[in-house]
């Protein structure tokens, strides 16, 4: 069996053995649920737009908390030494851990399908943007997980890993809004770097290869960075 799969299975099981997985899921559902239904009846529109609009911010807060333990915990307890002296490649470990984080974030999204279902009871729901939204959410979750893996590789302290991850994710989310006072050209370039911009594109239901490429690049750059960091620890 490929080693990536072994690492993935172990990590995903760890999420559901320890209480932290359930706690994170609960917080995520509480935050998204409250913000969604708090305004839902005011607008009286049958869509999930307010849920998806807020998702990049919620993810920037929650995903780093999911991924913070992936490397930091192993570096702290020293089990990393055990892991790396087993016949595995470092890239297998990084990809396996990243996939486990991304899969956990995806699993976390599953209960929010209830929001979509409850809307169909009240009004006519257009499923196109909803499907696009979920696709965008999975990609966004994966990209932020990769960032989180990178942050976790930097330190043996999980709290530090979480905060560093949050800072990077928030920056990626709010990039386009932070630079509004720059000249138009620069804003355009920065907008392209913002995760929320690409997420909004996909969640409108338009699947453009540029947006897919953006998320793929964030994942690649982050994991490559994690690889470099772990290499220098040897």
């Amino acid at each position: 069996m490929p080693q990536v799969l072994n690492i993935f299975k172990k990590e995903i099981r760890d999420y559901f053995i320890s209480p932290i997985g359930y706690i994170v899921i609960c917080i995520f559902l509480l935050v998204t649920g409250w913000f969604f239904f708090a305004t839902f009846f005011i607008f009286s529109e049958a869509n999930l737009r307010s849920f998806f609009n807020l998702l990049p911010l919620t993810f920037a807060l929650v995903v780093p908390a999911v991924t913070m333990r992936l490397f930091a915990e192993e570096l702290h307890t020293g089990s990393y030494e055990m892991l790396l002296t087993l016949p595995v490649r470092l890239t297998d470990v990084i990809v396996g851990k990243f996939l486990a984080g991304a899969a956990f974030v995806t699993i976390m999204l599953v209960p929010t399908l209830a929001y979509a279902l409850s809307v169909t009871f009240i009004g006519e729901l257009d499923w196109g943007p909803v499907i696009g939204g979920y696709l965008g959410a999975v990609l966004l979750g994966a990209a932020f997980s990769a960032v989180g893996v990178f942050a976790s590789s930097l330190t043996r302290n999980q709290i530090v890993a979480c905060i560093v991850g949050m800072v990077i994710c928030f920056t990626l989310t709010l990039f386009d809004r932070m630079v509004f006072f720059f000249p138009g050209r620069i804003v355009e370039a920065f907008t392209y770097l913002a995760a929320s911009y690409h997420f909004e594109n996909i969640s409108k239901g338009i699947i453009d290869s540029r947006d897919l490429l953006y998320f793929a690049s964030v994942i690649f750059v982050s994991l490559y960075g994690a690889n470099l960091v772990m290499q220098t620890k040897r």
Binding site: T77, S79, T85
Partner: peptide, 17 residues
Amino acid sequence: KKLIGYLPESAPLYHGM
């Protein structure tokens, strides 16, 4: 790595497992 079995100092295993 396949040839070697290694026990690091103070056996840092996965405590949750």
